[in-house]
Each structure stands twice: as structure tokens, then as C-alpha cells.
Amino acid sequence: QESVTLKLHHFLPPVSNVHSKLLEPWAKQVAADSGDRLKIEIYPAMQLGGKPPQLYDQARNGVVDIVWTLPGNTPGRFPSTEVFELPFVPAAKATANAPAAQEYGEANLAKETADVKLLSFWAHDQGLIHTNKPIAKMEDLAGLKLRNPTRLAGEALSALGAVSVSMPVPQTPEALAQKVIDGAVIPWEVVPSIKVDELTRYHTSVPGTPTLYTATFFLAMNKDRYAGLPDDLKAVLDKNSGMTFAKLAGKMWDDVGSEVAAKVKASGKNTVSEISEEEKARWVEATQPVRDKWVEDMKGKGLDGAALLEQAKALISKYSAA
């Protein structure tokens, strides 16, 4: 019987949670389900060459077989995915965002991702504001230099009065250590990897859903490579992708997130806090122009942004309730 080895390429180091707690267990599961006939070799840290923005095309063109990447790496190309990255749209939990994104993707991403086999589309849990001074209200953000994780999160930060600073991830810890920036906006999962808990002291989130921001991810496969798989291996892959994978991913972000949050709280040096519900209402209102502008921008791309936004919100509340 034919056995197949697929190359999976991504940009994070092998000690990362995504590599060790999501992709590796997933590859093992696929191997087990296929009786070791479908092997997935994972190449971390862009070892097979290129830069993160090229990952999607590497899958599309068959340079590698599968990639883990962010639609945000190639901005403009997947406008429909951006709805989850708008401020105060996503849920606080990844276990809600991830399946919501997957279902949304099944309905809306066929055209934008037509040139790959999209194995899964999901989003992480709430992003927090990590700073060197406490944040209780919007005015506390005024003039704070915060590294933004995405363009839309950056627009949200600006709308809230902060100074949105853009810089690549590798520069961020260095800039924090040297106090060139006052903080960074990321989910808990990323915090230990770039030592944001040691470089900042205050970790502020907004209460409940919808939350400040999230970012979305793709697991994408080369189309021909997928089509060429024997039917039984195709079935194994199908069984392990889509909603199955999204739920796995969502669980990883939530589990690691609460683990990290507990550890940071217990350290004694750091303060973890939430702003009040009333304050959150002000933030939601202040960032309304960001959502309005996005809906407006989508018109230029022939997309009904308002409808996409409603759909995303409905799915997020559906999976938040579940």
C-alpha cells in the first residue's frame, strides 16, 4: 500500500506552542489514523527557505505540501478574513473564535483561497495590552507607544489614543527591553516566547466578549498534492482538518493562555487586570470608526462588509454560547 510523506513548513521555532502543542500532536494523530501511511514532516523556522509572507504561495505552487501561516502575512489578498481582526468583534475565548472562523471560512473563503486546499481557518483568543504602566481607562493609553500586532489592531489602538508602533516580531522584545516602546499587544500564548512577562509589568484585558482583537490563521495545502492522495488517505486528512483542526487549535490557545495567565499572576511581580464594563463600552464606541471604515473599504473590493460582519458576529455568539 502506498504511503505518503508531506512537508509542512512554518515560521515559528520548534519550541513554540504552535509547533510542539498543535502541529506535532496533529501530525502524530494523522499518522496514527492512517496506520503510519500518511506522514507529515514538520520544518519549523522557515528552514526550507523563503520568508513568512511567501508561505501561502509555497503551498499554492507546490514548493512545500502544507503551510501554517497568517492571512495577515499577505495583506490585501484575503479581505474577507479581516472581519475577525476588527476591534470588538471576536470572542474572548479561542474555543469560540476558532470554530466560528472555520464555519465562516467554509461559507466565504472559497473564492479567495481557491488556489489551495484550505485545511483550516481559525483565530486565537483575546489579545491583551502589556505595558509598563497600569491601564484602567482610555486616558491611560494616551501617548503610550504600543507595538501593534495587525494593521486593524493598530487602527484600534490609534482610535483609543495610543501611539501605534509597527515593528517585526523579532525587534519587539529588544525594543521593549530598551524602552523604545512602552508595551505590546498580543495574546497570552505569545507572552512567554518573547518574554513579555519579564519585559512588562501590567497585563490588561477587556472583560468578556466581544474582545479587543484577535488574529486569524490558515492551514493550507497544495491542491494537486491533495488531489493526488489515495482516497483512504484523503479521508484521513479530511477527518483531521476543517472543524476538527480548528477546535484543536482553539483549545490549544485557551489552554496555554490560561496556563500562562496563571503563571504570570502567581509571579507576584506582575499585575493582571481587566478594565470595567463601563470603560469597555467607551472603548467599543471609540473604535466604531475602525469598523465603519472597514465596511466602507470592502465596498471598493466588491464585498458586502456589513453582511460579512453580521455573519461573523452571529457565528461568534453561536459558538460563545456553546
Binding site: D57, G72, N73, T74, P75, G76, R77, N148, R151, G154, S166, D297, K301
Partner: peptide, 14 residues
């Protein structure tokens, strides 16, 4: 050509 066709933009500005 592909970048044009896919409407690719810079990350922080469009």
C-alpha cells in the same frame, strides 16, 4: 503580475 492580480498591499498601510 501575481501581486497585482491578488491586490497585495503593504502590511500596515494599503
Amino acid at each position: 503580475q501575481e501581486s497585482f492580480q491578488y491586490n497585495e498591499t503593504m502590511v500596515q498601510i494599503s
